[in-house]
Nucleic acid binder design. Structure first.
Lengths: 248, 248
DNA sequence: ACAAAAGTGTTTTGTCTACACCCATGA
DNA sequence: TCATGGGTGTAGACAAAACACTTTTGT
């Protein structure tokens, strides 16, 4: 953890260290207790929430920058991370330009590259950045006010996630190692925001041949114990090359 | 047309005029005589071909920059234009950095935003830029050597086009005002690189309700004259909101 | 009159959808 | 023992795929 003074020095140097005019914003999705979540931060000074973001070091590939930023906020590495859109309106950071009038670095135009990440909820240890006091998961059904154009960035990410559901290993990245069929179904229902038929869902998912059915069942529920599954990563990758066929 | 000296002055000022570190590359697709084409330029000095590209003015929205660049190369406005990927490898412009060692502007790292455009072939008047002697259509079956990472950019655009075939008004943008069913089918076959059944194709396309069947037929062929169609733009837009369902 | 391309309709096949019954478990 | 959720199978609807015959036109 840097002291206040070290921080000030860091941002005074930012213009030298980081590639100017380019930023990265990440929409980090997690899934917990049947709810889809986004990782967000709350500003020190106002009731405004924003998405994890950062800048690109002078000689750093952008994918690597996104990974680094994500690791700083979540503690995890090797996450599923995809570029989805670039936000390049000259007015998108108007608020920052006003707030940081005297700061050379922040007072410039930024083209922001949007990434969305899919992570296993339980692995994440949310860590605030130097502008925030809070870093935490927000439920998609209970979102706060967004700063800047971050609402737009978030919406675009969510739309992309829905479109790519059949082309990306979304289940694999968001579910824990072992999970039950109803849990996986809940994930799909949450992302798509619609109910799916239990039996058809099962047949379809199993038909892809991307799951391993385990011998154990999930005990402790008040009812019949469901089987546990894990992903067959090799088959999953192969299947995704072709895209999982058909729409929901 | 600028003189050589005016050009030199322009690029000497580039650092002031354009947003540093950000560039735009466009993959312009056209369709002519049953062949899919890309618009490319050839360097003055070498046997290297590259994609139309340019930079973003300080206060210019990026979509507007892409449109401006496209207009400069093709003469047309209001084209179908979509962002598809950002290319941010620090080494991607290594060649330029070496070639333009003494130029402050070119000798910097560029994050390039990739756009693909779909245009009506006959509307385009290819115009070289200040680094090229030739601007012309290249057949997808007869592509030249690419400069920098432009082969990668092109491939990524083509993959995106295939994926989005059912979600974007691709036929509308690439076909002339009036066209026959076999011509439209050829377009789909070319993009997807596979043969389609004539009757099923027709039923499917007509089923979307996005075409107007005209009374005239295309005379002059050596055989039965096919009917002409035009797009019903209103229905097309509506249908695309939902995505044209099903895969080929 | 024939070759080649275009128009159109029917049968077959397979996939998605809707639905019902049995089973296991904790309360 | 009952309420609840989980496991599994089947018949019907619908859409895609396969396929054949007729029509038009230039040579």
């Amino acid at each position: 953890m840097l002291t206040k003074q070290e921080l000030e020095e860091h941002w005074a140097q930012a213009e030298e260290i980081y590639l100017n005019h380019v930023s990265i914003d990440c929409v980090v999705f997690g899934f917990h207790e049947g709810q889809l979540k986004v990782l967000m931060l709350k500003s020190n000074n106002e009731e405004a929430w924003y998405l994890p973001g950062g800048f690109v070091l002078n000689e750093e590939p952008i994918e690597q920058a996104a990974n680094r930023i994500l690791k700083e906020r979540t503690g995890i590495d090797e996450v599923f991370l995809r570029q989805f859109h670039v936000f390049g309106d000259p007015d998108r950071t108007k608020f920052h330009k006003e707030t940081y009038k005297d700061n050379l670095f922040f007072n410039q135009r930024f083209i922001s590259i949007g990434y969305y990440a899919l992570v296993d909820f339980v692995d994440v240890k949310p860590m605030p950045d130097s502008f925030s006091e809070v870093c935490t998961w927000r439920d998609l059904n209970d979102l706060p006010e967004f700063q800047l154009d971050h609402e737009n960035i978030f919406r675009t990410a969510l739309d992309t996630l829905r479109l790519q559901l059949n082309y990306q290993p979304i289940g694999y990245s968001l579910m824990p190692q072992e999970f039950t069929m109803p849990e996986l179904q809940k994930l799909y229902e949450t992302i798509l925001d619609k109910k799916l038929d239990r039996r058809n869902f099962q047949r379809r998912i199993l038909g892809f041949g991307i799951l391993n059915k385990l011998q154990q069942t999930r005990k402790g529920g008040a009812h019949k114990a469901p089987y546990l599954y894990s992903f067959n990563l090799e088959n999953y990758r192969a299947a995704l090359k072709e895209g999982l066929q058909g729409g929901w």
